[in-house]
Write a protein that binds this DNA or RNA. Structure first.
Lengths: 110, 110
DNA sequence: CGCAGTACCGCGTATCACACAGTAGAGCGC
DNA sequence: GCGCTCTACTGTGTGATACGCGGTACTGCG
């Protein structure tokens, strides 16, 4: 199974969710997502998502120097981002419920 | 929210699930999926999915005449298809659990 | 005969995650 | 000082796939 396709439409929300806990920068977010179970997530995917979310106004960003490497570009949720997270969460809930229902309706390989 | 993206990676499994109940033809499957809650699913998406699944060996197909319209191309699961459904179901379970965990970890716009 | 409903395709498009490669700063060993 | 590794960010091209739109074709009805 290719969870790549499953990820679509969820990565945005996952990034927003992770950032709602606390601000973070790209490299850090990748780590956090992987620790959360999205093990296969590619770094380029996350950076791309961050750019998209930022451009759509869901995120703010500010750069801070680091003591162990190049500067870090931190991202945080805007109110619009928080709302988007909320909506994504609702969508996810409805969608996952629907899909679950379809699988439950299927008789097969227990 | 665009459930289009969420659908990716799930439509295959949804079609397999619906067919595990009983064989069906394209037009019918579209209706069944919509009734199951996937309201926005496009017919072309389903036909494309059926073709793909058939070519990958997950489905068999046979044509029957209809008394109220053109012929119908019925599809049914092969053993490989049943197994793919089973795997997809497992993937879904793990994935949805992970995503749920990420949303639960987020504090936000309750 | 035209029209609606059923049934099936094909083509072009958009989105999105990913692999891969490249840039760059900081600290380490030699 | 040089190369190496780790941290950190970015750009390009590719593949998968759902969708919109349009087209074909058969049936029954007025």
């Amino acid at each position: 199974m290719d969870s790549t396709q499953l990820l679509k439409g969820v990565l945005d929300a996952a990034v927003l969710a992770v950032l709602s806990e606390r601000d973070g920068y790209g490299y850090d977010i990748v780590r956090r997502l992987r620790e959360a179970g999205l093990e296969g997530v590619g770094d380029a995917s996350v950076y791309g998502t961050l750019r998209r979310l930022f451009q759509s106004g869901a995120l703010t960003s500010y750069v801070l120097p680091s003591d162990e490497g190049p500067h870090r570009k931190y991202y945080g949720l805007t109110p619009a981002g928080a709302q988007q997270l909320s909506e994504a969460r609702d969508s996810w809930k409805a969608f996952s419920h629907t899909v679950q229902g379809i699988f439950d309706g299927a008789r097969s390989a227990a």
